[in-house]
Structure formats: C-alpha cells, structure tokens
Amino acid sequence: MFGYWDALYFVFIFIIGLILAWLLNEWAKKSGMGTRETGDGTKIFISGEDPDKVVPGFEHLEGHFTGKNVMWGLTYALKRFFRVLRDDHTGLLTDYVSYLLITTGFVLGVILIWG
C-alpha cells in the first residue's frame, strides 16, 4: 500500500510539465495578437500587472514586479472567500476569547456526545 514515491517519477512529471508549458507558450504566441519577441510590442506581462502602466499615487513603484499582482487571478476568483476570512480576523481581544470559548464548547460537546 505504501510504496514510497520514487523521485524518478517526479523527474518524469517535471519533464512532461515542461513540455506542456512550452507547447502552451508556443500556442499562445501563435494565437495571441500583441506579443512580439523584439521591438515595440515587447512587454513582460505577469498576471495582470502591466509594467508600463503607472497607477496614480504609486508612481514610486513604477516598473517593479512587486509580487502584489502575481496571484491576481486566484485572488480575484476567490475574493469573497478571502473577504470573509479577512473580516473574520477583527483584531479584537474579546473576539479571540469568544473563539476560544466556542472551540472549547464544540470540543466538549463532541467529546460528551460521541466520545
């Protein structure tokens, strides 16, 4: 049952992934419109961040890949989930205590009923 995962499998899958990524890249280059290898159209475009675009108020950050937008797609897709989690962390000491009490109550209930 627990045949250990051989490191060789990882190498194979890594190679397959590389090939897939290369194919995807080729396909994207062919079907995309505004991308060129050299010249005016060359831009590095990572997950929604346009390096030439200057956001008002953030001029000092112009042209840096800040990592702020790298996971833009993921964050955008799950933004309601993230907002719930963020709002949950209120920073109030009372809330922390009530979470501890809720946890204790839950554990106590489960152990008394099924334990």
Partner: peptide
C-alpha cells in the same frame, strides 16, 4: 480600552 487595540487585523 481593548477596542482601541485593533491595528493588527486582516
């Protein structure tokens, strides 16, 4: 007031 101590959040 503990309600004022909430600059760390999110």
């Amino acid at each position: 007031d503990v309600r004022a101590l909430r600059r760390l959040r999110g």
